[in-house]
């Protein structure tokens, strides 16, 4: 293998700037997508534990649609198909006047896709709380919303905290798919540097290092959160 190493080029203009803006887009995509996914996923997850049959069916269908179609295809649908189906004026605004339409499309795709996964997670978490807990809340006169808010959800959240963290890691990784519709996030930038310089090891190495760093930080955050929220157990 014949390869000229040049790690220094990563610190040089314009490549250092490319990597940093790429990282910026990756973080922005992940956080914006999460802000859609979390409330939506929580709501659908609660609906998945409903006692009404048609609420169950509808929320089940929602989850199965967003989980059984590849994210990349969902992204294409949001980008190429949805604007065509909107009322003409709105579609035009979406395509022409909205700043960074690729970014917002990717955010929607990531948000909805992740909401389906979070819904399943919340459903599992809510069902893992012993039934007696809800009964105890009911017996003291709380309504469904109060029982959920004060008794069941706080316990479910503690149960799903680790997989919830890994879902956030997934959205960070999945944000790389935005490059297919033209968002120059981290993976796209490293690819671009490789194309310009043929220094793939350095370019992809830098991106890999960033993702690994994000994963390490998230792991740390999770451990801290788990410690803070842990229920005191007899010593």
């Amino acid at each position: 293998m014949n390869y000229q190493w040049n790690w220094g080029l990563l610190l040089r203009a314009p490549y250092a700037g490319w990597l940093l803006t790429g990282l910026g887009w990756t973080v922005a995509l992940s956080i914006a997508g999460w802000l859609i996914a979390l409330p939506l996923g929580t709501t659908i997850g609660i609906a998945r534990t409903s006692s009404s049959r048609w609420v169950l069916r509808l929320s089940g269908f929602y989850v199965s649609v967003f989980r059984n179609i590849p994210l990349l295809l969902q992204m294409f649908v949001w980008f190429f198909v949805v604007p065509e189906l909107l009322p003409a004026k709105l579609g035009l605004w979406f395509k022409r006047d909205l700043p960074a339409p690729e970014f917002w499309t990717a955010v929607l795709a990531l948000g909805f896709y992740t909401s389906g996964r979070l819904a399943e997670l919340f459903r599992a978490g809510l069902q893992a709380v012993p039934r007696g807990q809800r009964m105890a809340a009911d017996a003291t006169g709380m309504n469904r919303a109060q029982a959920l808010r004060y008794v069941v959800m706080p316990q479910a959240l503690r149960i799903i905290l680790p997989p919830l963290t890994s879902e956030f890691m997934s959205i960070v990784k999945n944000s790389s798919l935005a490059l297919t519709i033209g968002v120059l996030e981290l993976t796209a930038q490293s690819r671009q540097i490789e194309n310009f310089t043929f220094h793939g090891f350095e370019a992809f190495g830098a991106a890999t290092a960033f993702y690994v760093l994000v994963a390490l930080v998230l792991n740390l955050v999770m451990v801290c959160l788990q410690r803070t929220l842990a229920l005191p157990v007899a010593v």
Partner: peptide, 22 residues
């Protein structure tokens, strides 16, 4: 009638206590 009013007047104690662990 909502069960809320009834349940305020009727307290219940369960086999497994069902205290809220959090």
């Amino acid at each position: 009638r909502s069960a809320t009013h009834l349940r305020q007047r009727v307290g219940m104690v369960f086999q497994n206590f069902e205290l809220y662990p959090h």
